[in-house]
Simulated scan of single mutants.
Amino acid sequence: MAIPDYQDFMYPFLKLLEDGKEHTLQEAYIFLAEYYNLTNEEKEEMLPSGKQLVYQNRIGWARTYLKKAMLLNTVRRATFTITDRGRSVIQDPEVSNLTKDYLMKYKEFQEFQDKKNSNETLLPVDSVEEKLTPQEKLDHSYKFIQQQVSDEILEKVKSCTPEFFERLVVELLVSMGYGGSIQDAGKAIGRSGDEGIDGVIKEDVLGLDMIYVQAKRWEGVVGRPEIQKFAGSLEGQRARKGVFITTSDFTEGAKDYVNRIEKKIILINGLKLANYMFKYDIGVSKVSEYTLKKVDLDYFEG
């Protein structure tokens, strides 16, 4: 038989968790390979990149979809338990398999599918596949994976310690070209004691201009009063530019305010923070890398 697709793996994955105990991703690999009687050849089949086994990649995506539908919980890295919602699905006699269409009944999964990234709706690849060129399929797949990874990044950032959050912000700003060195930026930025950090860093290596930074690991949205207070702090720090980072979001009033004042303040919400971490390789590692090529017509005409 062919290796099942990720949707086929979802229901038996949930069955593995039915006992309410913690189970690891490695256990899921073994259980699901046996469940579908995969041959050694099928278990050894690799993705075109040669970096991951096909069946394990599909099980990984099954796990992601179940998590987004809140049918399972991640208790720690690669370890899961079933949720009450997941248990009700398993106990429903009318449900014997799960599909993406079935998961769309859950609001959280709908939000995952409809989430916008930079004001662009990320469509599931299979819903538009027939209309796309091969390169467009690659682009959509990349954006879809980026969205999923960014979501996981933000979850991790929200759960990290204040010390870790401080280091993360320093590493990100230095990777983006600010703050000089890790050592310089680290000395310039410190914890403020309210689940946040603040400080002044160099805009360039020579320190010709300075940027005031404030970052808050908050759940609630940041409103105009907080941004007004931040703008006032720029004066005391002799800074004309500021960056305000939050793991949550900003109110429309806060966004409108920064567009009206003379000082330059950049607002980075949780989604942008996760996307910057993805772009600048902070907290992520490369799995595969593809280079698209085309025929060099000049070479042959020469």
Rank of each mutant, 00 (worst) to 15 (best):
Q7S: 12
Q7H: 07
D8R: 11
Y11L: 04
L14F: 04
L14E: 03
E18R: 14
G20D: 08
H23G: 07
T24G: 08
I30Q: 06
I30F: 04
I30L: 08
I30E: 11
A33G: 13
E34Q: 08
E34R: 09
N37F: 07
E41C: 02
E44R: 12
E44G: 11
P48W: 07
K51T: 15
K51I: 09
Y55H: 13
Q56L: 01
Q56C: 10
N57P: 00
R63I: 14
R63G: 04
R63C: 07
T64H: 12
K67Q: 12
A69D: 07
M70Q: 12
N73H: 10
R77T: 14
R77F: 13
T79A: 07
I82K: 06
G86Q: 05
P93V: 11
K100S: 11
D101W: 00
L103W: 00
K105N: 08
K105D: 06
Y106L: 07
K107T: 06
Q110L: 04
E111W: 08
K115G: 02
N117A: 03
E120H: 09
P124A: 05
V125M: 08
S127D: 13
K131F: 14
L132K: 01
Y142Q: 10
K143S: 04
I145G: 01
S150E: 07
D151F: 05
D151C: 01
I153D: 02
K156R: 13
V157I: 14
V157D: 08
S159R: 11
T161R: 14
P162L: 14
E166W: 13
R167K: 15
V169W: 08
V169I: 15
V174G: 06
M176W: 13
G179K: 09
G180I: 09
G180C: 12
I182L: 14
I182E: 09
Q183N: 13
S192W: 06
E195A: 11
G196Y: 01
G196S: 10
D198H: 11
E203G: 15
G207Y: 05
V213E: 10
V213P: 07
K216D: 04
V221Q: 14
V222Y: 01
P225Q: 10
I227V: 15
F230K: 12
G232D: 15
E235S: 13
A239L: 07
A239E: 05
K241F: 04
F244S: 10
T247Q: 09
T247V: 10
T251P: 06
T251I: 08
G253Y: 04
G253R: 03
G253S: 08
Y257V: 06
N259V: 01
G270R: 00
G270P: 01
L273E: 02
Y276C: 04
M277C: 14
M277H: 06
M277W: 07
I282W: 01
S285F: 07
V287A: 05
V287R: 11
E289R: 12
T291I: 11
T291M: 08
T291P: 00
K294D: 13
D296L: 04
F300P: 02
G302L: 14
G302D: 15
